[in-house]
Nucleic acid binder design. Structure first.
Lengths: 134, 134
DNA sequence: TATGGACCTTCCCACCATAGGAAGGTCAAC
DNA sequence: GTTGACCTTCCTATGGTGGGAAGGTCCATA
């Protein structure tokens, strides 16, 4: 049995976040020693690693909860899990595209900007003249 | 002179956010009518549009403040602005790459998953660190 | 002139996920 | 037995945005 600090080191999740995950119900409450210290075994550490990995893949907490539930349910169909993963791929794709667009616009502006000592700046001109309804 | 609602409609920035920007010092305090209503003219609306556009390009508030300062400074060198824009391109590039990596990993897992009624699921197996069930 | 509704004001709360810190208790090593 | 590293809870902040309550204002219409 480990302390929260050891569990944090073993799982890659900070002690702060472990307590937070417990508080929000993402993970079940840890056992306690007589003095009130949280205790963790290998099983709990595995759960924490699961959460960590899912977060690394960009899943929001809520989806991580769904994945955990499916993980615990031995009879779940893999199709459900796959759908969650596909949703996440779609979300990432959408977000990436948005940022690619921002980047392209900015690169265009940077390209048009002399970038020297002169105050003429197409970047500021663009920002100042953006067309919304006036 | 417009109300905050009209300025919001004209600039594309919500009234809530206009007040927030003012509160945090991003934009100067608006003028007030005798009754305490904020008033906005075309110049202020242009500033709001500037902010909106910069936020749309993914600049964090702090950088928007820098850009605004450069915008107001008629003698600024365009090189400074360009550097801010380039930094932002770099930030976007880094974030995009992170997300591309997440996406690639997930796509790999989705591809390996049968996605049928069987409980065998490589996605959960991966998340769990090799052991699908506890 | 009165009233109603659309606007404005300030203030507080919520989100998501994370980090920092203070105040106080506990454990283990020396 | 003291010291230092750990633990506990509780509060705060972040970045931007939205929601809403309680109360004031403005304008048009009945």
């Amino acid at each position: 049995m480990m302390n929260i600090g050891e569990a944090a080191a073993a799982s890659g999740v900070s002690a702060k976040m472990i307590r937070y995950y417990e508080e929000t119900g993402l993970i079940p409450p840890a056992g306690r020693t007589g003095a009130g210290y949280r205790t963790y075994g290998p099983k709990e550490v595995q759960i924490l690693r699961f959460v960590r990995r899912a977060r690394d893949l960009g899943f929001p907490m809520e989806k991580v909860g769904d994945l955990l539930a499916l993980w615990r349910d031995r009879s779940r169909a893999s199709a459900e899990v796959r759908r969650l993963a596909e949703d996440q791929v779609a979300a990432l794709t959408a977000r990436i595209r948005e940022m690619e667009e921002m980047k392209a616009t900015l690169e265009h502006l940077v390209h048009a900007c002399a970038g020297d000592e002169r105050p003429d700046c197409p970047i500021l001109a663009d920002l100042g003249g953006g067309n919304c309804r006036t």
